[in-house]
Computed example of a mutant assay.
Amino acid sequence: MEQQAQTQIAHILLVEDDDDLAELIQMHIRFQGHQTTRINNCADAIRLYREQHFDLLVLDRGLPDGDGLDICYQLRHENDWIPVLVLTARGSEMEKIEGLEAGVDDYIPKPFSVLEFQARVRNLLRRTSSKPVSELQQASSTSSIDFGILKITPALHQVSLNDVDVPLTATEFSLLEFLANRPGRVFSKDELLQHVWNTDHAGYHHTVCSTINRLRTKLAQPEEATQFIQTVWGVGYKFQPRI
């Protein structure tokens, strides 16, 4: 009950065509105190998403009218960075990487652990929980992490590079914020999984690698030879500021 109290009530859109599984997932979402709406195909999911406000999308991949990843691709193309959790029977390593490259924040293969699913929902919602409007209005440059051309404003969930906004997923932002708050310190994949993804499962190492690669691409500067996020071979990753 304490975990539910720490998270605001969210509205979650579930896109799943298996009726029995959808009912089970919705039951566990409601058990966490959240609202849920279920759709069973891509077209209706996009339509409903544009009509209502949702805090999280939970997508199946094998839908009657296409791949659930198509929904994620479309939203990311429009610079919509709502958290997306894929829950699918397509659980090979390459399929997970494909999902992460599409901009998915988390990827759980079926069959899945209910406790793990609930934990990952909590984790994604916690990363994107809204602050009161008055608090956002009071946010100023003093609340930003400033590294010259790179500016991170946690209160607004905003990153800019050379004064141009950089759209990041919830996971990408959490990873960047974590590393940027500890410049120069090297973290292993296991440490990043624990602190950013709240898991100690080594099977998700590829998730760290994919997210690091996406961040590097988004923060890349053609004229610069070095990256903000650097690999320390055989050890892990670190944030190297350039001020």
Rank of each mutant, 00 (worst) to 15 (best):
P83E: 09
V86R: 03
V232D: 10
A202C: 08
S141M: 12
H53Q: 09
L125Q: 08
I82E: 02
E78T: 00
L168M: 10
I82K: 07
I25E: 02
S141V: 09
T7W: 10
G99S: 09
R216A: 02
T36G: 04
A170C: 04
R38A: 07
R214D: 01
A202E: 11
S174G: 11
L100G: 02
Q221C: 08
L59N: 07
A102W: 00
H53W: 03
L125M: 07
L85G: 03
L193N: 07
K189H: 06
D44E: 09
I243S: 15
V196E: 02
P183N: 01
V104Q: 00
V235I: 11
P83S: 04
Y49H: 05
Q158N: 08
L179S: 01
Q4Y: 08
R185L: 05
D165A: 12
G99L: 00
I212F: 03
E16Y: 07
K96F: 02
L125H: 06
Q3I: 15
N123D: 10
L63P: 03
A170S: 07
G62F: 01
R214L: 04
A202D: 06
L14H: 09
G66P: 05
A170V: 02
H206L: 10
Y204S: 11
F54H: 03
T171I: 04
V196S: 08
E172M: 12
Q138K: 14
G203D: 05
V186Q: 09
N79K: 15
D17V: 01
L100Y: 01
S129M: 15
V186I: 11
T231C: 03
N213I: 04
T171M: 04
H195P: 01
S143M: 11
H195L: 12
A45M: 06
H205A: 14
F178G: 13
I46V: 11
V235W: 04
T207A: 10
Q6S: 15
S210Q: 03
L56K: 02
I97M: 13
V235M: 11
T217D: 00
D17P: 11
Q3R: 15
S210D: 00
G184F: 13
H195R: 10
F228Y: 15
N79Q: 12
Q3M: 15
I229D: 03
E98R: 06
P111S: 12
G103V: 01
G66M: 07
E177T: 11
R90G: 00
I39E: 15
C209N: 10
L136K: 14
H201A: 05
V133P: 09
L219V: 07
E78W: 00
D163M: 15
F112A: 03
E2Q: 13
D200I: 08
T207K: 06
D165I: 12
Q4V: 14
T37L: 11
V133R: 15
V186F: 10
W81I: 06
H206A: 06
S130Y: 13
F173T: 09
L48M: 06
L219N: 14
L75A: 01
T231F: 01
K151C: 11
S188E: 04
